[in-house]
């Protein structure tokens, strides 16, 4: 049964290699941002599979942490791409 999880680990690692290729090669900046977001999701699944393989529950909070950090990072990147600044000083639309 444990070999299933090892196989899934190898599959997710291969997918991460593909994402890294897209980060390096990606013609435009949004390609790289989307690839980085997908890398975060793949990292989450790798941590989950690794905690199954190592028979420990101490990694489960890191999963939620990585989800939050990856979301905030992607939002910050996309706001920078859209408007050129991350934090607006004053509101002009409400």
């Amino acid at each position: 049964m444990i070999y299933v999880f090892w196989g899934a680990l190898i599959a997710v690692a291969a997918a991460m290699v593909g994402f890294v290729y897209r980060v390096i090669k990606g013609p435009t900046i949004p390609d790289r941002v989307v690839a980085l977001d997908a890398l975060g999701v793949a990292l989450i699944s790798i941590i989950a599979l690794l905690s199954v393989v190592m028979k420990t529950q101490f990694f489960l909070e890191i999963i939620l942490l990585l989800g939050i950090l990856s979301f905030i990072g992607t939002v910050a990147f996309s706001k920078f791409i859209e408007r050129g600044e991350i934090f607006e000083r004053d509101d002009n639309n409400h």
Partner: peptide, 26 residues
């Protein structure tokens, strides 16, 4: 269990950073 004051503080400040991203500083 893993965690503590440092990670908790970083998470609270990241929640405030998310508020800053969605709204503005004012």
């Amino acid at each position: 269990t893993p965690g503590g004051g440092f990670v908790g503080g970083l998470l609270a400040s990241s929640a405030i950073v998310l508020l800053l991203l969605a709204f503005d500083i004012k």
